[in-house]
Amino acid sequence: MFTIASSPRLYPLTDRAVISLTGDERVKYLQGQVTCDVTALNAGDACPGGHCDSKGKLWASFWLANLGEQLLLVLNRSLVARQLPELKKFAVFSKVDIEDVSAQWQICGLAGEGLSHWLSHEVGDGNLWQGGVVMPVAAEHALLLLPKDAVLPELPQGDEQEWQGLMLQAGLPDMSAEHQGEYIPQMLNLQAIGGISFNKGCYMGQETVARAKYRGANKKAMFILEGEVEGEVAVNQDLELQLGDNWRRAGTVLSVCQQGNHCLLTSVLNKDLDADTVLRVKEQPDSRLRLRPLPYELAD
């Protein structure tokens, strides 16, 4: 549906938010809150991760970057209203300042053949650049965070929907407020893309995450679906699974990108689905969606 451009493109993004952590105990504090290993990140490094409640259900999935004196979380803007107060809940006991700094940053996607070569020429060895950071998220795909007063690179620009489609094809999770408190991290495949450390110390929701891995407690995963629909498809719409002549509820739309009647979306579904499973959007009985292979191996 979406083909990566033959040369690097810039995708200005409007639906992302940025949360900042500063202060002497920023790393220690965040390490006790999220699924990824914050202590493993040097200045310029980045990784995916999740922030859970005490029961292991996600408040947010995100990308985390270490800018040296500052940690930045990049996430879906709709998550901030509920997630930020939860992240700050215990901050009064630590030397850390946490705030929504979205207005201070320009957030863009970078993608295209030759992007890694372009970055090595423009950015150099590290990922810190012009007071911001480049965050690789997949092969020849990256997020770019630059201060508001920085000059964006002179590259052809693509639209936000195209970037969303590229992220869906890469199997990268993007949850919205509608799904907060519903999924554990493994249901969004965070373990498959390096977003969960099973060797770090305690963090919020760790017992549930560990149980899902070591006891096989998780029976769901995020899948990519593609096909034809009858009308507009939105986040949280119900999806149905075909069983002979009947249809049964299977899950909801996690994130979606649509061009006309052609639709690409992600959904959390049972892990044991057959590759030839047929699904549809519940309100659109003539729609048909099929599973698209994930670009990585799933693991508990």
Results as ranks from 00 to 15, higher is better:
Glu297Phe: 03
Ser176Gln: 14
Leu289Val: 08
Pro156Arg: 05
Glu86Cys: 08
Ala177Thr: 00
Ser287Val: 12
Asp45Ala: 15
Pro12Arg: 07
Gly260Ile: 12
Ser61Cys: 11
Asp272Pro: 07
Leu264Ile: 08
Thr35Val: 08
Trp118Ile: 14
Val27Arg: 10
Met222Arg: 04
Leu273Thr: 05
Gly50Ala: 02
Ser94Trp: 06
Leu58Ala: 09
Lys200Asp: 14
Asp125Tyr: 00
Gly244Tyr: 06
Asp245Gly: 11
Gln237Leu: 10
Thr14Tyr: 10
Thr39Ile: 14
His51Trp: 07
Ile19Thr: 10
Val38Tyr: 05
Arg280Val: 02
Ser197Val: 14
Gly158Lys: 03
Glu122Lys: 09
Phe223Val: 02
Arg211His: 11
Glu69Asn: 14
Ala60Val: 09
Gln186Glu: 07
Leu87Arg: 07
Glu240Asn: 00
Thr277Met: 08
Thr266Phe: 00
Val80Trp: 00
Ser116Tyr: 03
Asp125Val: 12
Val235Ala: 01
Gln258Ala: 03
Leu145Cys: 03
Glu140Asp: 13
Gln180Pro: 04
Ala250Val: 14
Val123Trp: 04
Glu178Pro: 01
Leu72Cys: 10
Gly56Tyr: 05
Leu67Glu: 01
Asn270Ala: 11
Phe223Arg: 06
Asp174Lys: 01
His262Tyr: 03
Ala91Gly: 12
Thr252Val: 14
Gly181Tyr: 08
Ala150Lys: 02
Gly244Gln: 06
Leu168Gly: 05
Ala5Trp: 01
Lys220Ile: 00
Val80Asn: 08
Ala192Gln: 02
Pro185Cys: 02
Leu73Asn: 04
His121Asp: 13
Pro12Cys: 01
Asp159Lys: 03
Ser255His: 15
Ile196Arg: 02
Gly49Lys: 03
Ala210Gly: 09
Pro48Cys: 01
Ala81Gly: 05
Asp245Ser: 13
Gly124Trp: 12
Thr208Pro: 03
Tyr203Asp: 05
Glu86Tyr: 03
Val34Met: 06
Asp159His: 11
Cys202Leu: 06
Leu30Glu: 04
Thr39Trp: 05
Gly171Asn: 03
Leu254Met: 11
Glu207Ser: 05
Leu146Ala: 10
Val38Gln: 03
Arg248Cys: 02
Ala177Val: 12
Leu225His: 00
Ser102His: 04
Thr266Cys: 02
Ala299Ser: 15
Lys220Glu: 06
Ala43Tyr: 10
Leu172Pro: 12
Lys213Gln: 15
Glu69Arg: 08
Glu140Lys: 05
Ile196Val: 15
Glu86Arg: 12
Glu230Thr: 01
Ala299Phe: 09
His141Asn: 13
Thr14Met: 01
Phe2Tyr: 15
Asn127Ala: 12
Leu155Asn: 13
Val27His: 14
Leu13Glu: 11
Gly231Arg: 02
Leu264Asn: 00
Gly231Thr: 04
Trp247Met: 02
Ala40Asn: 09
Val18Glu: 09
Lys55Trp: 01
Gly158Cys: 10
Leu143Val: 04
Ala275Gly: 04
Asn270Val: 09
Ala46Ser: 15
Thr208Ser: 11
Asp245Phe: 00
Gly201Lys: 15
Arg82Asp: 15
Glu283Tyr: 00
Glu283Pro: 00
Asp97Asn: 11
Asp174Tyr: 08
Leu172Thr: 11
Leu10His: 05
Gln106Met: 03
Asp15Phe: 08
Arg16Phe: 07
Lys213Val: 04
Gln186Trp: 04
Leu239Thr: 13
Thr266Arg: 07
Glu297Pro: 05
